[in-house]
Amino acid sequence: MAPIRLDLTARLCEQLGLFERPGVRVVSAEPADDELLTSVHDEDYVRAVQAASADPRQAQEVFGLGTEDDPAFPGMHEAAARIVGGSVDLGRALVAGRTLHGVNFCGGMHHAKPGCASGFCVYNDAAAAIVAMLRDGAERVAYVDLDCHHGDGTEAVFWDDPRVLTVSVHESGTTLFPGTGFADELGGAGALGSAVNLALPAGTGDAGWLRAVHAVVPQLVGAFRPDVLVTQHGCDTHALDPLGHLVVSVDAQRAAASSMHALAHSAAGGRWLALGGGGYEVVDVVPRTWAHLVAEASQQPLPPQTPLPEPWRRHVLEVLGREAPRTMTDGAQVAFAGWDSGYDPGDAVDRAILATRRAAFPLHGLDPDFD
């Protein structure tokens, strides 16, 4: 989670001219206040974060602070609260009709739970943005998580809330943190079907990953009819990522962003809040994937063969001592078979897809075998 991944992403977007495109505005954000943070998090947890932020020696592991994943550091509260402020501001702008799309690639902190930090995440900006949008008049919000890891924190916040659909497509918890997110995890008794999980086997590549996303997400979001679509684009699904075991390319991640953009228009009136998330290959993957996301949201996708600006590549060499990619593509030929091509019981990806469809689709009035 080194901040350089965000710096390199912003520099790349700037040097590609994405921030200067017509209709694009780069806006600053203030840290979320206590009232906003406690709309999602327990008050005693927020106080613990503030105390550890002022003096890291006060970090309490009972709140997930001072751990290997979430070490305490001076200014931690302000940094995490500012990420929340950015996502909330964008969400409110969407509901108010001041913008149609919003991107916060600093956000997507989906592991933070109401009462503790987890998995590099201190405050859950996605959940706070969804709560703010509901308070501002949105009646239903769909959240789609494409990170390699299960979006457990965001799911937990809305486990009993039928107004929010959370869909997470991730590597199976049998092989990856946080060890949750299986097909039978469907939401609380008063909101059964509000949580949907698709747990993919380690080693899933572009074709299987995109087949899985398209076999579950558009159908469920379309049936849910949300006012706003929120998507989390953790790019630790990439083959080069050091923490996950999926083998997805930048090209497939770009295709998924395009699909989420189209889904926002077909199912949510175009209102789309796109967030970052995980991603730990900070040169080859994170900046390119999220620059593609920004370009997609600006309604002008970048051609895959777009060269990376030489000043950006020189900066990477100077700062990190390594060569950067030359273009915005991995050279992958992105293609996948839709679910209507037929189910292969011998394929582990298809078995995972079918398990999720059979568990969740009937709860939304969908036929798991044909819709």
Rank of each mutant, 00 (worst) to 15 (best):
S194R: 10
A274C: 07
G188A: 05
V230S: 02
A215I: 01
Q253G: 07
S266G: 09
P218D: 02
H265G: 15
G277D: 08
A191Q: 03
G203A: 11
L200I: 08
A189Y: 02
S249L: 08
S249G: 14
T204L: 11
H170I: 04
D206E: 13
A255H: 11
H214V: 01
L243T: 08
F224I: 00
G279Q: 11
G181W: 06
T175V: 08
W209Y: 15
G234C: 06
A264K: 01
Q253N: 14
G279V: 04
V250C: 11
V196Q: 03
A274L: 03
W272D: 08
T180R: 05
T175Y: 05
R271H: 12
W272G: 02
S259V: 01
H170S: 03
A264W: 06
S172I: 03
E171Y: 01
A257E: 07
R225E: 02
V217Q: 03
S194G: 07
G244Q: 10
G203D: 13
R225W: 06
R271F: 10
H245T: 13
L229T: 06
L200A: 08
S258R: 11
P218C: 00
L186P: 01
G181F: 05
V282Y: 05
D184P: 00
A215F: 00
L165P: 00
Q232A: 00
A215G: 14
C235D: 12
R271K: 10
A268W: 02
V216F: 01
H214C: 02
D227M: 08
V230Q: 04
S259A: 15
A252S: 15
A195L: 07
H261M: 12
Q219M: 11
G278T: 04
E281D: 10
L263K: 01
L176R: 12
